[in-house]
Amino acid sequence: MPQIANNAAARSSAKLFLCGDVMLGRGIDQILANPGDPHLSERYVKSATTYVELAERIDGPIPRKVDDAYVWGDALSELEREAPDARIINLETSITTSLSLAPKGINYKMNPANIGCLAAARVGCCVLANNHVLDWDEPGLVETLGTLRHAGLVYAGAGLDADEAAAPAVIELAGGGRVLVFGFALETSGVPASWAAGAYKPGVNLLADVSARSLAQIARSVQAIKQPGDLAVASIHWGGNWGYEVPAEERALAHALIDVAGFDVVHGHSSHHPKPIEIHNGRLILYGCGDFLTDYEGITGYETFRGEFALMYLPRLAIPDGTLVSLDLVPFQLAKFRLNRARPEDAAWLAAMLERECSPFGTHVAPLGSDNRLTVVW
């Protein structure tokens, strides 16, 4: 990837857009302009169109053949208003026409012809180290990588071999400096060990262990590329889908990624709802960002977690030291496979939940103003 000379003095901070799982496959793919083959081999569901029908039972008719911007809804105007310097998502789907189904029960794919959906949000980096990018086996991953490259979208956390999977995505900042995004996956998120990339094998950047030796290797990788004025993000897929608890081993790993490996942000995902936020030595840890775009709208169960709510995370980081300056959260509600601004009562529920879960970590969440935004203080 092309590099630029650093000019860190030209800017004193950078704002990022981070979010959790962006799952544009399966049901969402079926309402886009170029729906792919809907066939599924799930235990109870055999067609992706069923997920559209289930959602329609909850919120009414969903339009078909929508334009590329539809699913992003109100999030697009918020992104335009905030103008983040880098936009980073966990892209949790393969982008492929492959019929090579991985035998795992739940398989996501988006038709490559719908790649414009990512361009509509001007995504800067797609993190691929997760438990759905190989849902259609290695042919599906290879096509996913090729589709992203052809569209000019950078990615991290997966590759044609282990070196590419471990390499960071490099986002150049206007005025100098860069955001370096490293993607990691843990088996605790449901990523099979067999998905690990190898010397001549496509796959994901799977952390087989979190030993001191492994952390030292990660630190060397960061130090080899990070320059003054750069910001380093560890985007990591870990843990289960439901529950607010942060396991002690995840917290220890997050701290080590900052203290030992030199990361400025730990961007955690896998949970279907937001989890606690911590500021460790001045640096941001998001233990679970929750879903951002999914086709779960009509699926019942776990209602107490309010999985229909999505958060846009907008941290501002100081340059050159990478410490957190501010963190605003913008809440949305997913309805009709579209992100809509959250109502005041929904934003209040999110604020109360986050305050409850974050306060043991020394962070607090409160409404920021009249537009239902939230702010994090520490």
Rank of each mutant, 00 (worst) to 15 (best):
I106T: 09
V66F: 09
L153K: 02
R64I: 04
G124R: 01
E143K: 01
A120T: 09
A129R: 04
R64Q: 14
T50A: 12
L99R: 12
V66R: 06
V133L: 03
G116Y: 03
G157L: 08
A86D: 02
H132N: 11
D74W: 03
T96Q: 01
N111W: 04
L153S: 03
L54F: 15
Y51D: 03
S98T: 01
Y44A: 12
A113Y: 01
L145K: 05
K65A: 12
A48L: 07
A121E: 03
Y155S: 14
D85F: 03
L148A: 04
T144D: 07
A121G: 09
L76F: 07
C117A: 15
H132G: 04
D74K: 07
S94K: 00
P112F: 02
L141K: 01
N114W: 06
D163M: 14
L118C: 01
K104L: 12
G60V: 10
L99M: 10
D67W: 05
E138M: 10
S98H: 01
C125H: 04
I171K: 01
Y155F: 15
Y155E: 00
N131F: 05
G124C: 06
W72M: 03
G176A: 00
A158M: 08
S47R: 08
T93G: 08
A83L: 14
G176V: 00
A119Y: 00
G73V: 13
N131L: 10
S47K: 04
R81M: 12
A119L: 15
A120F: 06
Y108M: 13
I106E: 07
I62L: 11
G176K: 01
R87A: 11
R149G: 07
T96W: 04
V52N: 02
R43W: 10
A55T: 07
A120V: 11
E53S: 15
K104E: 07
K104N: 12
L141C: 05
R43I: 09
G175N: 02
G60N: 08
I171V: 14
N131S: 08
I58Y: 06
K65F: 13
R149T: 14
R149S: 15
E138S: 10
V142Q: 05
P112L: 06
P112H: 06
I88H: 04
L101D: 13
A129Q: 06
R87V: 15
P103T: 00
R87E: 08
L99C: 08
N107G: 05
I95G: 00
K65C: 11
L118E: 00
E143V: 00
C117F: 01
L54W: 14
L160F: 11
I171H: 02
I106Y: 14
N114D: 10
P168A: 12
A151Y: 04
K104T: 05
G124E: 04
D74S: 10
L141G: 01
P103V: 00
A129E: 05
L145P: 03
N130F: 08
A166I: 01
A158F: 07
A119Q: 15
E80D: 15
N107L: 12
S100F: 02
R122H: 13
Y108F: 15
A83T: 13
I89Y: 01
T93H: 04
E172V: 10
S41F: 14
